[in-house]
């Protein structure tokens, strides 16, 4: 067990302890407030559920139909040309849609190349420093009924691209 894993194990319990104790200190009716806050979750998840079904089915179809693979293999030569490891490419594309699918791919890469290899390191860093763009956007925007997302997608793509290039450069050093 490394130090960081050890420390991060304490983050959540300590956060909760801090919040509860400061609630007691400020004479908050903590259990009543807890229940009234927790009650809202049902409504939130009820709103999210249909959205998630729509998104995950669309993502699942793209993956299972073989379209994503085809897309990746189409652009792979270009990336190979500039020296970007093409093995990491599917990971970055799929991470935009689904976190669980990306994790599955990450494990495959670990098994094939080893966790501490160049590809293992780079894919770890890429996954650690990116978010699921489409998942996040659909959940947050559909919750408040937004359909015109303006410059959210370009911004998100730009930051993902920056992260990918940065990971590539950092791993090359």
């Amino acid at each position: 067990m490394s130090v960081f894993q050890y420390i991060s194990g304490y983050i959540m319990p300590l956060m909760i302890l801090y919040i509860v104790v400061s609630g007691i200190v400020h004479k908050v009716k903590i259990y009543d407030e807890f229940v009234s806050g927790a009650k809202e979750a049902l409504g939130v998840v009820r709103n999210i559920c249909p959205v998630l079904v729509g998104l995950l089915v669309a993502t699942g179809l793209l993956r299972k139909s073989g379209f994503l693979e085809m897309l990746v293999s189409l652009v792979a030569p270009l990336f190979e040309y500039i020296g970007f490891p093409e093995e990491v490419l599917p990971l970055i594309v799929i991470k935009m849609f689904s976190s669980s699918a990306a994790t599955g791919l990450l494990v495959d890469l670990y098994k094939e190349f080893g966790t501490d290899s160049y590809i293992g390191m780079m894919s770890s860093i890429c996954l650690a420093s990116s978010e699921t763009i489409f998942y996040t956007m659909t959940i947050y925007y559909s919750y408040v009924g937004i359909s015109k997302t303006r410059w959210t997608l370009p911004g998100a793509l730009l930051s993902t691209l920056t992260g990918t290039v940065a990971a590539w450069l950092v791993c090359g050093m």
């Binding site: 919040i19 400061s22 400020h26 407030e33 807890f34 806050g37 927790a38 939130v44």
Partner: peptide, 16 residues
């Protein structure tokens, strides 16, 4: 989410 929304309500009322 139920758990965290409950805790966050305490955090809000407690001034955190």
């Amino acid at each position: 989410m139920s758990f965290w929304m409950g805790i966050m309500e305490i955090a809000r009322k407690g001034g955190v």
